[in-house]
Design a protein around this nucleic acid. Sequence first.
DNA 1: ATGGACAATGTTTTT
DNA 2: CATTGTCCAT
Length: 749
Amino acid sequence: MDDLIAGLNLQQQQAVMCAPGPVLVLAGPGSGKTRVLTHRIAYLIGQMGVSPYNILAVTFTNKAAREMENRVTDLLSGQVRGITLGTFHAICARILRREAEYLPVTSSFIIFDEDDQLQMVKQAIRDLNLDEKRYTPRSVHAGISSAKNELIGVDEFLVNTYRDEVIKRVYRRYQELLLAGNGVDFDDLLLHTANLLEEHPDVCEKYAHCFEYILVDEFQDTNMAQYKLLKHLASFHRNIFVVGDMDQSIYRWRGADYRNLMRFERDYPDAQVILLEQNYRSTQNILDAAMAVIDRNPNRTPKQLYTERGSGASIVLYEAFHDHEEAAFVVNTIANLVARKQASPGDFTIMYRTNAQSRVLEEAFLYANLPYHIVGAQRFYGRREIKDLIAYLRLAHNPKDEISLLRVINTPPRKIGMKTLEALHTQSQRMGLSPGDLLLKLHQDMQASRAEPESYEALSGRATAQLVNFSDLLAGWRGFLAGEVGQSPSPLQLLDRILEDVDYRNYIDDGTEEGQSRWENVLELRRLAAENRERDLASFLEQIALVSDQDTLETSSNVPTLLTLHAAKGLEFPIVFIVGLNDGVLPHNRSLDEPEEMMEERRLFYVGITRAKDRLYLLYSQQRNTYGYPDYAEPSRFLEDIPSSLFAEVQPARSATEWSSSKPIAEERWESLKPADGVSGTKAGQEKKHKREASSSYPPSTRVQHPMWGEGLVLNCQSQDGDEVLDIFFEGVGLKRVIASLARLQIKT
DNA sequence: ATGGACAATGTTTTT
DNA sequence: CATTGTCCAT
């Protein structure tokens, strides 16, 4: 008992040990909210004798769930088996599979991801003969999604404008398409579960009885569906313990509504409210800056963040001439601090508003020949080759999945184009079958050597031949799955068979560096399948659908991290740079005229600032490139809110001429900076490795002269079709890719 | 059916 | 600038 609460402050102890009933913990950044949650669970099990089976703990990411599980396991030395701990979506998927009898889909439903959702909206728009230009799949999907987040079904969808009418019709068609494929989307997981509990009191009671204690992390990020869901689950015991901070609500555009915190207080007037204000992460200067920024938001519970760490270093505000120099300042600063052994490369993070901003930074790192790590830009599961293979698996699992069928039917190319697909579509409609089922029937008919009867009139002979080829493959996998050859195969065995049947490697690995990297991704998926060899296919597919790239974030390699402010939430770093603090970038252009959006931009900045433990650098520039063209920019209006007393003396910006003539940092110093393991900076998807090729006439770090761009430094070279492709950094111009024989390059000595 | 050349179009993205 | 989709010639 004393062990458990040792090291917790008063408020934390109060939260951990508070009596049953509704509890609202308002937790400032770095105030130890995860500690409170994990200790609370340990307290319930260890001290109150609550069975793990009666505890439900919900998070937003798998990573957070994993971390919580590990920490509780440590605290209790292992007696956590039985606890229901996971993301909202994973827990809902579990409930829905168990209660599938109440659903319009079967328990082996598949979960459509963002990409599939867009494809499906596109399909729906086409089915309805609507103008794709006028109603982009993206915006229509946003409309459908936010309706679902508000628990608004198609029939309840209110129409005020013609646009609403369009969305409503697409929504209806979209749901039909989902059901036809026995699928649900991310939003449906929540929506269906909430509706299920609402409409079936007996089911609701079952779960509400079971979950004696409910704990929720990041409560400010819940949407209406999640709120209602929790309310149902807590309807019997009312022991609902939520932790949140409205100041860190940055997912409004995903349906999150921080007002759920207020709604909670209203719905549970007897709730105990506990404020966690002591910060264990940052120095006081950093906290003061953060509070100065966030205090300007109206209608919030004021929090006085304080630390016992002392004021710490001043915040550095730097005005760069343009974004290139901004990046150069970041890299130089990192290099200097590392060289002087004041910090190690992994201590640094650079945060920005939009992913596009990472490019300049990457160039600066490449130019300096320093490794870095970038989060998010291209996610593993978003990669083409991975999506292809998952689509194959899904199709084998569920031939009715038309989205997956369309994806793989001509990948690798099988001479099945638009014409053939159209024919397949008409024919399947005529027969009242899904295209996948039609293919299987086609296969059967061919097996029975019933030469194509008139029933396939929509299919031409040529088209049929190609389709039959594919249907043989599909039928083969179906049979394989059904256990024709003894036992039912594992996902890995099926994957391997598919890889071989379609000769995928030959298709994807064309011998270029990119092709090899793609094949490596395939091997990575294989490895993942091998790890999950105990799971059946359905469960493997679910796991893949519900895993995000955030969850794969590795922090092990000792190199600086580049990420968006959104991706930074929940993390902390000794030294933080926030770049692009210009109006139009940090308060983003699209938020300027919308007060709610503006508040969210402010919170985003707040989240960024509060990631920093020891040092904070804020950067903006006089000029920046937008879509390739330079443009003058104003400093972010948020900067005005930070008292100047917190800033270190502002260093004068160097002029453009000074910058373009400035020399790169001596190369010996870079050598001393390189981490021992020599991890190279990678941009996912498009790797730019510094390959040393002895045969090349322009090996990396050669200085060259270009007739147009002047002097540059070769960063990378690779052979292609007997020629050399070079990546060269030109000062004041940027990174250029050239063909050695065409660019009239001179080697400088 | 496919690949190459052109125009159109650009937030953030826990699941 | 860089990615994505559409049109057109093979």
